[in-house]
């Protein structure tokens, strides 16, 4: 068990180091003049020179890499060209709203995708199964930015059921800052007005974000469950006279869970990408809106920081998923 954990942690550290190496090469080696890239396309020559001295870009590459790593470890990603503040301060401000949206969507796709997959597997080849297949294929084919626009058109413009964007009604004061998640904070402080308004605002963006992943997870659940349901031990469980519900949920689903967890971990990655687009559509004040503004002024420092942070987050999620395997499937521990 410990050997497995240590080996897994070692790989994760190596991957993280690889991430920093790749972003270093991309932002410091690939461009003809990295100082110009870091200073921004609008910078004057003396500003470019200042950036060059500040980040040691006139020094040999290995020294530059040392400076780069030392800065990263201190959380110094440079200055944002657009907000004129250190990128790390911006990240702190925009990170939590993105996490709130991402986690809500994650919860949504997992809690709906797995049951939908189970239903598809149980009623295999029925109209319900075909419908769920079409629903799933549409989900992976529909770009989030288009789905978001359609939802906005239908539920805001035509039906008027949900707001078009934002995190909370501008006339309702946000809940007291405890976790930084509006939903949790308003729940903890019993601020029901803020809770209702936050739920109202997060619904459309979360549905937009969750749909694609929901489709993938439901298909994977179906496939994995169908495979397990054909096994001998399921026949044995049925022969013992166990209720179908017990066979399905206790015997089959648990054994089918490893691929479902794997795909969920992978989906977090596409969620992290998708959340940026969804935030742009729904004016959600998170990393996506920040990245969008950064992209329009080619603020490489900010984009690099977002790339690194999401890469680290994604690596962390995959590590967590790997550790979860050992809980779901104890056989993995001994390998």
């Amino acid at each position: 068990m410990w050997a497995y954990l240590l080996r897994r942690l070692g790989y994760t550290l190596l991957t993280l180091w690889g991430l920093t190496l790749i972003t270093f090469v991309l932002t410091r080696v690939v461009p003809g003049d990295p100082a110009r890239i870091a200073a921004g396309p609008q910078a004057r020559q003396e500003q470019v020179e200042q950036v060059r001295r500040m980040y040691g870009l006139d020094k040999p590459l290995w020294v530059q890499y040392g400076i780069y790593m030392a800065n990263l470890l201190r959380g110094d990603f440079g200055k944002s060209l657009w907000s004129k503040r250190p990128v790390i301060d911006d990240l702190k401000a925009y990170f939590l709203p993105t996490m709130e949206l991402g986690l809500t969507a994650g919860l949504m796709f997992f809690c709906l995708g797995v049951p939908l997959g189970i239903l598809s597997a149980v009623y295999r080849n029925s109209p319900l199964d075909h419908l769920s297949r079409l629903f799933a294929l549409a989900g992976v084919s529909l770009p989030v930015f288009i789905f978001g626009l359609v939802l906005q058109l239908v539920f805001y413009k035509i039906l008027g059921w949900f707001p078009a964007g934002g995190r909370i009604d501008p006339f309702i004061p946000p809940p007291r800052h405890l976790t930084g998640f509006y939903l949790l904070d308003s729940l903890i402080t019993g601020n029901w007005r803020a809770l209702v308004s936050s739920l109202h605002h997060i619904f459309l963006p979360a549905v937009t974000l969750a749909y694609g992943s929901l489709a993938v997870v439901s298909r994977m659940t179906r496939a994995s469950l169908l495979e397990v349901l054909g096994q001998d031990y399921i026949r044995t469980a049925r022969a013992k006279g166990l209720a179908e519900r017990v066979v399905l949920l206790k015997h089959a689903l648990r054994n089918a869970m490893v691929p479902i967890l794997t795909i969920t971990g992978l989906q977090i990655g596409s969620l992290l990408g998708g959340v940026l687009l969804v935030e742009i559509i729904f004016s959600w004040p998170g990393l996506g809106t920040y990245a969008y503004t950064a992209v329009t002024v080619l603020d490489v420092n900010a984009i690099m920081a977002i790339t690194l942070v999401t890469g680290i987050l994604y690596t962390g999620v995959n590590l967590l998923v790997d550790l979860l395997y050992t809980v779901v499937d104890p056989r993995i521990r001994y390998r």
Partner: peptide, 10 residues
């Protein structure tokens, strides 16, 4: 290990 859309953006 990078989410591909964000990496492609960079």
């Amino acid at each position: 290990a990078f989410p591909y859309l964000i990496f492609a953006m960079l």
